[in-house]
Amino acid sequence: MTEHAWSHPATSGYLAGADLTGYKVEATDGSIGKVDKHSYEAGDSYVVVDTGVWIFGKEVLLPAGTVTRVDSEQQKIYVDRTKEQIKDAPEFIRATHLADTQYREEIGLYYGIGGPFGGRPV
């Protein structure tokens, strides 16, 4: 992931304006929850995933650049991260983090823009 962290990859099959709310989210090694909220603004796209009981009801924010495929028929999105990587992501607090640019930077770094994985996609 590079500067396009906050944009859906052209190859993902995402259609601008499509409502992903309720879609199941699949990590590279299994299901992690459902889309609770998403944004499809150009350069500012993300999905908020409700992980349910999988990680104790935690919500996580994933930049749109992590989405590799959208399957509208099955109502699933696939992301290029493992469950462990998602579980260990910086904590998401809806009330403060959606508009927090510092948090967005932290998320971008975590998911591979010069962050803990050496500036390469994890």
Score class of each variant (00 low, 15 high):
Y110K: 10
D80S: 03
S7K: 13
H38D: 10
Y103Q: 09
W6P: 02
Q75W: 00
G112V: 03
Y110V: 11
V122R: 11
G57N: 10
E106V: 14
T2F: 09
V48K: 02
I32C: 07
I93W: 01
Y46D: 04
Y110G: 10
G52Q: 01
T68C: 07
D100Q: 09
S72H: 10
A5H: 11
I113D: 15
E3A: 15
V70P: 05
T11Y: 00
I77R: 04
E59R: 04
I55T: 03
H4Q: 12
G52K: 00
L61V: 09
H8E: 09
V48D: 03
T68A: 09
V25I: 11
A42N: 06
K34Q: 13
T28S: 10
Y46M: 04
F92E: 00
I113G: 08
I77M: 08
A10W: 07
P63R: 10
I32E: 07
G57M: 08
K58R: 14
I113V: 15
K87C: 00
G57R: 08
G33S: 03
K87M: 01
H97Y: 14
K76W: 04
A89E: 05
E91I: 15
G112M: 04
V70F: 04
R104T: 06
W6L: 03
I77V: 13
H97E: 14
H38M: 11
G17Q: 12
P63Y: 11
T101W: 00
G33L: 05
L62C: 08
S12K: 10
R69N: 05
K83E: 09
T51I: 03
G119W: 06
P63D: 10
D44C: 05
T21C: 12
P9G: 04
S39I: 10
Y78A: 15
A10F: 09
A18H: 01
V122D: 12
G65N: 10
W6T: 01
V47Y: 00
Q85H: 02
Q74K: 15
W6N: 02
S72Q: 09
V70Q: 04
G65Y: 09
G108E: 13
T51A: 03
